[in-house]
Amino acid sequence: MNITVCAKQIPDPANETSYDNGIIVRPEEQVLDDTDRYGIEIALQLKEKYDAEVTIISMGPAGTMKGLQQALQMGADKALYVDDDSLKGANSLMTANVLSELAKTTNADIVIFGTESTDGYSGTVPQQVSRFLNLDCISYVKAIEIGEDVSLTRQTSEGSEKVKMPQNCVISVTAGGVEPRYPNFKDIMAAKSKPIEKVELSTLNITTDQNLEFISIEALENSKNGEKIIDEGEAFQVIVDKLKELKVI
């Protein structure tokens, strides 16, 4: 079985993000999006069951490839990426197109995503990829049970539902559903010799247009300023009254 996990390298969230004309400025060194660790964890659990190969696929400026290395350190077997200037600021449909084509090159049976990237937040790529690949999409997976069969529990607007995992599908995983493993020291060392391969965009069958126009970016205004309560010995009473008013207590 081939399992493919789409993972994104993003600027280290510990640092402040900077934008150039609405597009995130990506430093040479980017890290693995924490959201993707959940998807990788599920892939690694499935790997143990099916003796599958786990491939990381990624689109975006490769830089030092630290984020991809981090994915390999967790235990994935190899990584493929597309890094092409023409994809700068790509919309989600274009991204889905590129990732679908990459997934095809790995003969993926199962394609796994985090729910949405920490720097982009579009949250639509997994569904779009499932259409490109003509596979069922099981979105918002929050738990996995591996027995004889594999069942997935997905978050729904009403609560949750359990589905049996088909042999071929696209899965998007919510954060917090599983506990991503910490890389084992030996895996950290082994990752250095795992293959990371660049795929040229020109070799992929891209059928969509870059049909998104960027207009502007503005900082969100605070919708409401908080109220300042000056404590002259009675502040606690004011707060209690407020909380009562809000029916919190």
């Binding site: 290395q69 910490y182 950290i188």
Partner: peptide, 17 residues
């Protein structure tokens, strides 16, 4: 190449766990 990833991952583990 050995020291940096080792320290980074050990840091992540220690900070989070």
């Amino acid at each position: 190449d050995i020291v940096i990833p080792t320290m980074e991952e050990c840091a992540k583990f220690s900070e989070e766990v």
